[in-house]
Design a protein around this nucleic acid. Structure first.
Lengths: 161, 161
DNA sequence: AAAGATTGTCAATCTCCTTGCCTAGTTTGT
DNA sequence: ACAAACTAGGCAAGGAGATTGACAATCTTT
């Protein structure tokens, strides 16, 4: 394998990982910008990760960690930040004295719905610019690939809490 | 829009942004793991961003910043880290006294080729598991979408350095 | 020459995450 | 019943990667 900088660069530009990086970064920046523009100035990109995984009756830190796929400490810290933004609240677990249940506040529910609306709007815009079929197909292919390479990361309706 | 936690969660799982996040994260983790396994223990995920954008005869910090799409400061810091890992070297610009030219060392060229091999191997593996056509199509659709939403991020053969 | 831009860097700060350790509870084994 | 083992959560420290503001050195324009 020879080394020619231009061809190496061109090659990398077409790598799947590079394409994924660019798409993720571009879309995430846009979502954050628009959610903030809706008046949620305290919103941070990481918030939706947790907010969207809370059950109506609340969820424990450990369960969240398992769902999100990070450590309990990370969730605990993230939860503190979101709590300080007034979007969730901590409560003692009804039966397990060690556990803490995290639950949406009203504002937490509102911002989540707003974020979902923003994401839908952006997707719709992408579909308008790049083609309805293309974007739908892209989502299908991504979901298909993820089913192969990251089955655990998927939402499981039967998750035990 | 009503609020039902389970349906909201399910809805978000199918959002394009969420799919992109999962795919990016999964693939990036795998690339890093394998490159490290090839003996590049000092390798960090962020390195390839810069390494893959260096020209054979070197590139200035400002040019890199424009190419990568971040600030000069970020590039400067990243360059220091990569320099300390022995993969690039700084040199004074031949004509412009303000500029610094960043260039691959031999090790820098080798690790980049290794990383590209790793990425190709992973893509091939994905193609085997999820289908050749599917992965090729996924890449095509991503590139197509990016052409619409992030035209600047693309590689430009006519870039002036 | 003087005014203005541009290049790279320093320093401080921020976000998100990790690792190591610790206490308070709960479950298990005998 | 009771000690051992495990689990839930949080504290502290710190790292990776980026941002922002300020700045000296150097070019460019007028």
């Amino acid at each position: 394998m020879s080394f020619d900088s231009a061809s190496v660069r061109a090659q990398r530009e077409q790598m799947l990982l590079r394409l994924l990086f660019r798409a993720t970064h571009t879309m995430n920046a846009e979502v954050t910008r628009r959610v903030r523009a809706r008046g949620w100035t305290a919103f941070k990109p990481a918030f939706t990760t947790l907010l969207s995984r809370l059950d109506t009756d609340g969820t424990t830190i450990s369960t969240l960690a398992a769902r999100i796929g990070t450590s309990r400490q990370a969730v605990s810290q993230l939860a503190r930040a979101i709590e300080e933004a007034g979007l969730i609240e901590r409560m003692p677990h009804p039966t397990d004295g060690r556990s803490v249940v995290v639950r949406h506040t009203d504002a937490g529910r509102r911002i989540l719905l707003d974020a979902l609306e923003v994401m839908s709007a952006i997707e719709a815009e992408y579909a308008r610019r790049a083609g309805e079929t293309e974007v739908a197909e892209l989502k299908g292919l991504l979901a298909h690939l993820l089913g192969e390479i990251d089955p655990v990361g998927a939402f499981r309706a039967d998750a035990v809490d």
